[in-house]
Design a protein around this nucleic acid. Structure first.
Length: 282
DNA sequence: AGATAAACCTCTAAGC
DNA sequence: TGCTTAGA
DNA sequence: GTTTATC
């Protein structure tokens, strides 16, 4: 087994968000996967089985590693539902559900932990590791009503499934979609084509506000596996207005929050505050 | 095009 | 307490 | 969270 290079490099994230989960502010140095496999074996190491084709709608994390043997080595990770990236100090044995470990130059590991095995990890440069098409980044300057309108493309599908589609807008998941629609006072079942300029502006503002606040609060932690690097739960869970609150009173009007299934996802909204937008005149 | 269901997996909270 | 189910 | 198949 070759000596591990004692080189450290900063992790450079593709963006500031990890599916609404919190940020891993660690430094990583390249070494090898568990078992001494070289980088090319990473894909096959994931969940011990072949990985399917690259998703076209996804929230990928890119980790650039520093490995003298491989030019610009990098790994793409998608956490899906239960994936986590955890730094394990030297000497701590791998816990349950560790799918891939990157051994760090300092002796510790970066573990990709994923109980449900939905997550993906692959090496950049492999044929199937191209980044998917992503819609506009909502936190970038220039994201406004017109850009969102263009992304929605006048489609007649309901808002919720469209906002969940990463090709339309990048980075929205189930929780923040519900919260943004609540703030914009829009019924998740509204056909996108029914939104006028003012509704589009409101939706943009709501998306940006929700994401900004959630990031500042370190995420939502709706289940125990979502933790900050320090092990703390995200504080945004305390500020969720509708998500996970079916049957509870709307914070604005006290009407019971409705919980329905849309696009196979639990969807929460206030039937009184959130209206189907008026059809656009034409 | 759009809606819907099933598939991929395991864990835990909740209910009886 | 234990077993089952719903939901993530 | 996402893909694939079916209506």
């Amino acid at each position: 087994m070759p000596e591990l290079p004692e080189v450290e490099t900063a992790v450079r994230w593709l963006g500031p968000r990890l599916c609404g989960r919190t940020l891993l502010g660690a430094r990583v140095a390249w070494a090898r996967t568990l078992g001494g496999q070289r980088p090319a074996a990473l894909n096959r190491a994931v969940a011990g089985r072949a990985v399917r084709g690259v998703s076209r709608r996804a929230k990928w994390i890119r980790i650039d590693l520093d490995d003298p043997a491989h030019p610009a080595p990098a790994v793409l990770v998608h956490l899906r539902m239960s994936g986590r990236l955890v730094i394990a100090p030297a000497g701590v044995p791998p816990g349950p559900h560790v799918r891939v470990s990157l051994l760090l130059a300092g002796g510790g590991r970066l573990d990709f932990v994923d109980a449900r095995k939905f997550g993906r990890l692959r090496q950049v440069g492999d044929a199937d590791a191209a980044l998917p098409d992503l819609g506009p980044e909502p936190l970038a300057p220039g994201f406004g009503g017109p850009q969102l309108g263009a992304a929605l493309g006048g489609r007649r599908a309901r808002l919720k499934p469209l906002l969940l589609d990463q090709r339309v807008v990048a980075g929205l998941g189930n929780i923040y979609t519900d919260e943004a629609l609540f703030r914009a006072r829009l019924d998740p079942r509204t056909p996108a084509a029914g939104l006028g300029p003012s509704a589009l502006d409101a939706l943009c503002a709501a998306i940006r506000a929700v994401l900004t606040e959630a990031i500042a609060a370190q995420g939502s932690s709706i289940d125990a596996s979502y933790r900050t690097p320090a092990g703390e739960p995200g504080r945004f869970q305390e500020r969720l207005a509708v998500y996970g609150r079916g049957g509870e009173p709307c914070p604005l009007c006290q009407t019971a929050i409705r919980r329905v299934l849309l696009a196979q996802r639990a969807t929460h909204f206030c039937p009184r505050c959130q209206r189907r937008a008026r059809a656009r005149r034409r």
